[in-house]
Amino acid sequence: MPLENYALAARAEMTRKSAPIFEKLFTTTAWLSALLVMSFFSWMVFDIAANGFAKISWSFLTEAPLSAGRKGGISTIIVSTLLILAVTIVVAVPLAIAVAVWLAEFSRREGFAARAIGITLDVLAGIPSIVFGLFGNAFFCVFLGLGFSILSGGLTLACMVLPILIRATEAGLRAAPNEWRQGGAALGLSKATTLWQVLLPAAAPAITAGLLLGIGRALAETAALIFTSGYVDRMPASLNDSGRALAVHIYDLSMNVPGGDQAAYGSTLILIFLLIVINASAIFITNRILKARIQPK
């Protein structure tokens, strides 16, 4: 393929008299596409920032929502969001570490079981969030009888973020040099001890980065939560209560509450702020790993 391409390109180049104009046109088009997208993006960000800052205050963060969220704050929403995230993390992290340890340390790399599990993880990562919502509703809310609750929402999100966590942890473990495993074996340590004392601590930054990405994904999620954790905006008394996540709050304010725009702007700014902090820390930690990694000779 490339040879004919070169020939065609060279011929076109030689026969074309007005090449400089086309060269300019090409550069301008590339600049324009970048500028167009960036100006659209900045328009969105500045609009949200300007309107959001006007709404945010200490009382907005610490008061419960009043009159369907038009007045008051988002304290109960923040609590519900944190509880949902907590359920997600408590369930997903141990599972993810276990699977990742098996994949990285115990499986035969191209073995049937490892490949089959890898494929199912890819499938899981590709399922659209609304379908996770359908599943969560049918399984956690109805079949297990958990109803619309923080528990149902958190468990649904746990299924969703599992592939992210597993892949990140697996990559962290695989990056640990083989000498460390051999060193453990030479000292007569069991594989379990080597894992616990050497490999998992070495993979800890990667696990943290993956965890942050997973939390970011869970925090951004709306579709999977509207019919698992529900809409109730009161302070949840337990994990069995329905609780409204921040993203669901934004959705409800803008779609179902006339005059809820300003509160929605405030909530959106908080959500974006949280996501930027989380993603930035994930990137920071990943860069630190790359720099700090001890290179075996």
């Binding site: 925090l219 669901v248 934004i250 974006i272």
Partner: peptide, 16 residues
Amino acid sequence: LAGIPSVVFGFWGLTV
């Protein structure tokens, strides 16, 4: 841009 939640795109689209 890739990390912005869909509900934010929806909200901004709806209001602007």
